Simulated scan of single mutants.
Amino acid sequence: MPTHPDFSLNHLLVFAREPVLGRVKTRLAADIGPEAALTVYRELLSITAAAITAARVPATVWLAEAPAAADAAQPRTEWPGLPWRAQPAVESLGERMHHAFGEAFASGATRVVIIGTDCPGLTPALLQVAFEALETHDMVVGPADDGGYYLLGMRELQAEIFINKNWSTATVLSDTLADAARLGLRVAQLPMLHDVDSGRDLDRWRGR
């Protein structure tokens, strides 16, 4: 009989921001205004949270900016039932992701996946497939059509994946895959999806 993975050893990391006017989706806000951009961001948060809940995978939300002191002890309403942490105060996205992966592995996880909150095509099935891929691969990537990725997973910490990248550019995916090939890692790729970062992306998502 086939064996089934022990999903209790999975952990999902979610990199997000607090939904605060003027602090989220700044590229999108330049096209549609900050109020409309905040509304879109709240919708993307809802889609992401629903996918995580349905996937039934342990998860931690890592916030780019910690809430104000008065709110710090309160559960985040956008993430019902999920614990949250503040991302470390370093400029590089790679350093912040490396830190979050390191903490998850140090806590006993053997398959760790990270996502953001910009991808409306994220589904519970994709999250489950990502963790399943790590049973037979060293790394899994969900490519985004802007040259980045909407998901990255690994089954042991690979520090070189997080350095020497021009983050938020069209070379991130290709540079990541090149590093993985150089390190001899077996990589699984999920279907390509698109993020919503600009007014053009929003029109595409809405079908306009």
Rank of each mutant, 00 (worst) to 15 (best):
P88N: 11
P88S: 11
P88K: 10
P88W: 12
A89I: 01
V90F: 00
V90P: 01
E91A: 14
E91S: 14
E91I: 08
E91C: 08
S92Y: 06
S92A: 14
S92G: 06
L93S: 05
L93I: 09
L93A: 12
L93F: 06
L93P: 05
L93N: 05
E95Q: 13
E95A: 14
R96Q: 14
R96Y: 08
M97S: 08
M97P: 02
H98L: 15
H98E: 15
H99Y: 13
H99F: 13
H99N: 12
H99I: 03
H99L: 05
H99G: 06
A100G: 03
A100N: 01
F101R: 02
F101C: 05
G102L: 04
E103F: 04
E103M: 11
A104D: 08
A104R: 06
A104N: 10
F105R: 06
F105I: 08
A106Y: 01
A106E: 12
A106T: 09
A106V: 02
A106P: 00
S107A: 15
S107D: 15
S107W: 07
S107Q: 14
G108N: 08
T110G: 15
T110D: 13
T110S: 15
R111P: 03
R111F: 02
V112T: 04
V112G: 02
V112R: 02
V112A: 06
V112L: 07
V113K: 00
V113H: 00
V113I: 07
V113D: 05
V113Y: 01
I114R: 12
I115C: 01
G116V: 04
D118E: 11
D118C: 07
C119M: 09
C119A: 14
P120Q: 11
P120M: 09
G121M: 09
G121P: 02
G121E: 12
L122S: 05
L122K: 09
L122I: 14
T123E: 08
T123R: 10
T123P: 05
P124Q: 06
A125I: 07
A125V: 12
L126G: 01
L127M: 07
L127W: 03
L127V: 03
Q128V: 13
Q128W: 10
Q128L: 13
Q128D: 13
V129C: 14
V129H: 15
V129T: 15
V129L: 14
V129W: 13
V129M: 13
V129P: 07
A130M: 09
A130P: 02
